[in-house]
Design a binder for these strands. Sequence first.
DNA 1: AGGACTACGGAGAGCGCTCTCCGGCGTGCT
DNA 2: AGCACGCCGGAGAGCGCTCTCCGTAGTCCT
Lengths: 345, 345
Amino acid sequence: MDVEGQTERRSPTLEQVADVAGVSRATVSRVINGVRNVDPALAAQVQDAIAAIGYVPNRAARSLVTRRADALALVISGAGDGGPGSILGDPFFGRVAGGVIGFLRPQGMHPVLMLAESEPARDEVVEYLRRGNADGALLVSTHSDDSLPARLIEAGVPSVLFARPADPIPISYVDLAHRDGGGLAAEHLLRRGCRMIATISGPRAVNASQERLYGFRDALARHGRPYVPCAEGNFTRDSGEQAMKRLLAAHPDIDGVFALNDLMAQGAIHALRDSGRPVPDQVAVVGFDDSSAAVEELPELTTVRQPVEDMAAEMARMLLDRIADPGREVTSVIFEPELVVRESG
Amino acid sequence: MDVEGQTERRSPTLEQVADVAGVSRATVSRVINGVRNVDPALAAQVQDAIAAIGYVPNRAARSLVTRRADALALVISGAGDGGPGSILGDPFFGRVAGGVIGFLRPQGMHPVLMLAESEPARDEVVEYLRRGNADGALLVSTHSDDSLPARLIEAGVPSVLFARPADPIPISYVDLAHRDGGGLAAEHLLRRGCRMIATISGPRAVNASQERLYGFRDALARHGRPYVPCAEGNFTRDSGEQAMKRLLAAHPDIDGVFALNDLMAQGAIHALRDSGRPVPDQVAVVGFDDSSAAVEELPELTTVRQPVEDMAAEMARMLLDRIADPGREVTSVIFEPELVVRESG
DNA sequence: AGGACTACGGAGAGCGCTCTCCGGCGTGCT
DNA sequence: AGCACGCCGGAGAGCGCTCTCCGTAGTCCT
């Protein structure tokens, strides 16, 4: 018993296929990659040989010569405090991942999942990509002051962002017309006849939050409502509940609330219920995202839909384009939000 | 301007480092990989050269000779109906991914995320792994009749399962002592003095569901309660709500409910509230998992905690062990659940 | 002091694949 | 009928790295 022989059972190589098919390596390679015309009879021989010995191309060998990893990194950057799990638990990332995978899979690619919630973690992401472990990065940042986009550009790694960068750097991105979304929410609340409208915002550092708020306030201002009270949350359910309590303490007559995401909207609804203000009868609540959280709890949320899966798929498409042609100009695609009216407002 | 020159700006190679440092490639390789003793003075020279020209090792070249991809696949198998997003939206997978990443990252590894919710998708997973894109698979199956574990073994891909396989196949896994968890829930409800106890189960095909139920019923039987009504759900919030309604219709006097996961428990609570039975005052509800859903909604759930992150980390550890030493026997690690008492029961 | 052993750097052979270059043959045009 | 061109298969040179093997130098034991 040769122990070496046991473990060294190697998978068949292209050369073996060539031997079996009675052709050269080059021809086998051409058949596999579909480049140039190969005589149909020869091609069939090659295919038979491949099937006969169960050949699968070796990715490392191919990568070595093509200088492509045929892999993308999906980087969740600027993640929070509660360890790796906390951020991934957010259904938002599930939607992004789902959209990315849905697009990539038909191309035989799969994303490498990376978290970059600390500075050393970000170093590692850059290092990983520089090594050629992936051909590019899909970046989902939770903080707008994230250094990663700039660092990736500097390292020459093709990248596409989900949401525009805070600083003007030459990088492609997809984004939502957040202001329009805020406007949609405002018009809806106005249409419902709300008189005392308040908002629950996200952290100031989050650009999307600012934009939604801006669009909301702007629309209200255009209807002669210059002042909108605002309490700051941090996108968690609990923070929404706390924010709502603060708002109620200051303005007991609130009859309309715009929360900048669904989770905070749910929290707000609970705070309202606790204080004896049924939703939507006394207070209308509008969320943002149309995440799964919007329909998981009653009343189902009226919310501004963000087509996250489509945006994620587009992001992947843009990155693939860019990898195929690195010279191409950076681009951006902005998606339009949509109001989804349900029970809460 | 030579266009070729533009795009062909290649990253420095080990050979260039060797030239700069005035040593051989082998020595540079030894310094980088820390094998054998290298004269400290030479090692320093090499390190300086690496820093000077910004060298990073090429992963493909290394993989080619070491026959290792230094990557693992995290496969979510048997996923459901609602497209890629639906399953990833489940916070459970976020916890698994978080646990895996938390363990893998310190080793410089990152999981490749794959979905295998259809037969062609499973084919692709096998193919992907056979190509050597990853050294092994971390498999999270939602259905016990999943063919993937067996196929991966057959393909010689080192694999570790989250939850034991339905059929006895030689594969390593981590799992929870689900029966003990069911027992914990039963004893808690008994302790609370519940008289009419019902259960909301998951799909029959899910082994974990059967086990939790078995443990629950067994504990009840030991206390002279041979019969426990059961309505079947499918682990979604809505199915829990529907199941609860069916249970109430058949047994209006229910005062204790054990739902086999938190989401269904939340749904049950809503159904109970809608029917004018406050939780926990009239009916005690116990969930399972201690997912983020358990505390996102009021009342916060009394539930059986499953240490998913720890289990996922252990799974990664086991897989790495197995890859390092393929001859090693398959093993299993069973985690103990823990009762977390909150407001709902 | 001589021999054997250890320590450590260098040379060189690939790992499995792609791709350029070359050559032979068949076809169409003059 | 001769020549040029296009089509397609084969040969061979690497891609960047690791690792075995070898040689030299230093060390310890008898």
